[in-house]
Design a protein around this nucleic acid. Structure first.
Lengths: 131, 131
DNA sequence: GATCATCTTTAGACTTAGTCTAAGTCCATG
DNA sequence: CATGGACTTAGACTAAGTCTAAAGATGATC
């Protein structure tokens, strides 16, 4: 908890009790989560926290680079506490999102796109468990 | 219009006037569109069409493989009348979605993902126009 | 051509994710 | 103690999308 506060401070985020609870949730949860999932779990420990505070906190964390926001599935933004780049595999049967290490795939050709400067990219795969 | 009806029939879709209007919109519009965009344009020609019909029609077209539904941006599913596989580049300044031909990028490694059978994949790039 | 089951459309209620707002709380500082 | 800034809160609001129940259109069959 001490280091959580430190981490927030180091990134210029005032560590309030509410923000700490959100941060704690992020560390303890399954790495991919939606804002509504975060809200419902944080509410158990901090019953008066408001939806706006959770959304604000998540947005601040994304802005500061501590968490990534990804558009992978319909309906809700997926937050991801792993900010290092990697690819994603979506299980078409369960909807689960799995990581694919950056090194597992190689993409070539991104340098040669006419007129565009590519800032980032990743591969989105869809598939299902074998058997 | 004759061939529109034919196309729908060939895919087992009963060609109603409402469905034809939606199909016509898809052919005439900019290839990437949201359901709400489709609704608002189709309403101009067919003022009594309901939101549910537009959504139902789009979902049927996706089911039958005539249109693709993609999760690329926050907030709304992007429909795409180009169903052949290709990659996408999202302009980080304008939010516009550009196509990247399948052959322009090469992805290797998708065969060797432990335990998973990859059904499809594509690369999502983010970038901005040079200069 | 009349009947009936089936398919389709409609308006509007509903749900869910997410943002906005206005008022209140909590400090720190002069 | 007054002021102001940063933060939180409840709840209103918005936008995308689904659902429902009733009405309307269609097609097959006799």
């Amino acid at each position: 908890m001490k280091n959580l506060m430190e981490t927030l401070r180091q990134h210029g985020i005032q560590p309030t009790p509410q923000r700490l609870e959100v941060a704690r949730y992020i560390l303890e949860c399954d790495r991919h989560f939606s804002a509504e999932q975060a809200l419902s779990i944080v509410l158990e420990r901090c019953p008066t926290i408001s939806r706006a505070t959770v959304y604000n906190t998540l947005n601040i964390l994304v802005e500061k680079g501590l968490v990534a926001a990804r558009v992978l599935t319909e309906g809700a933004v997926v937050f991801d506490s792993r900010v290092a780049r990697h690819h994603h595999l979506i299980d078409t049967e369960t909807g689960e999102i799995h990581d694919v290490d950056w090194g597992a795939l190689k993409v070539s050709g991104t340098r040669s796109l006419a007129d565009f400067e590519v800032q980032e990219y990743h591969v989105v795969l869809k598939g299902r468990k074998k058997q």
